[in-house]
Computed example of a mutant assay.
Amino acid sequence: MTGIHKRHWSGDKDRPALALHCMMGNAAYWGPIAKRLNGRVDLTGFDMPGHGRSGAWTPQADGTDFHTAVTRIAASFIDRPLDLIGHSLGATVALRIAVAAPDAVRSLTLIEPVLFAAAPDAEQEARDNVMSDHLIHGRASDAARGFIDIWGAQPFDTLPPSAQQTMTEQIGLVVDTDATLAKDRAGILREGGLESIDAPVLIIAGEKSPGVIHRIADALAARFADVGRAVVPDAGHMLPLTHPDQTAGLIGLNLDRA
């Protein structure tokens, strides 16, 4: 793992915030969100290893997995309580941090958290099995296509060839996170963990997202002390990119609650 590219949008220095992007994305898509928040928070983001302008992800000598590595990078940006915002994989990293250090979180906004262990789903398990089979048999582009066609902002085959190539190279990271997302190897769902978060939590989902997302939101919401729910009409999984007005507005509401 080499250099991590940091992104920053200036705002209220007394209101630091950290935003964590999705798998196969990069922190640049928080720019339109930051613009709409209009300086209410001093927002920082970073490109995860193997994403955006950060260096490639390489297996760690100590055996650290990708999700753990990203969590440690994110935690390194926290030196006082802040507003923590995450989307998809980034939402699971945000949640992992909040469970481990609830005092570090002023507010927690979870956009489409993909913590599948919270709501086991046969359809999602079938998708994971198909993806794994593609990779085992050297069909990485088919694996990427199947993933993006469900979770992306547009169908894989409509993307530029360069984007298709990048996503094909990244698809192995999706499988590498399975132990955390589907089996909760990190213990995010441990007894008393979610309940220990006393900061206001907001869970945001897209109306057209896969059903498992809404079931995950149900399962998580039932355990938080202070939680709000929102569904963005006509939106899918990539709503920070496709619906920045609504996404920023909802984040703002949770900032107000803190």
Rank of each mutant, 00 (worst) to 15 (best):
K13G: 06
P32L: 09
L84R: 01
S162N: 12
R127K: 14
V231M: 12
R185I: 11
R80G: 05
A217R: 11
P59F: 10
E207S: 08
L189Q: 04
V201Q: 00
T2M: 10
P113Y: 04
I85T: 03
K13L: 14
A119D: 01
D42S: 10
A100W: 03
T71K: 14
V232D: 00
F77N: 04
A144V: 08
D184C: 01
A143Y: 09
G206M: 04
T158G: 05
R96Y: 00
S209Q: 03
A61Y: 02
R139K: 14
A104Y: 03
D128A: 10
D149C: 10
G152F: 10
A101M: 07
G39S: 13
V231R: 12
G249D: 13
P240G: 10
G187P: 08
E207H: 06
I4L: 08
A186D: 15
R80P: 02
A182E: 10
I78D: 02
D103M: 09
L135D: 13
G172M: 07
R257M: 05
P113F: 07
D176S: 15
A100V: 01
M238G: 14
L241W: 11
P200Q: 02
G50L: 01
R53H: 14
P233I: 08
L82N: 01
A144T: 08
D245Y: 03
R7C: 11
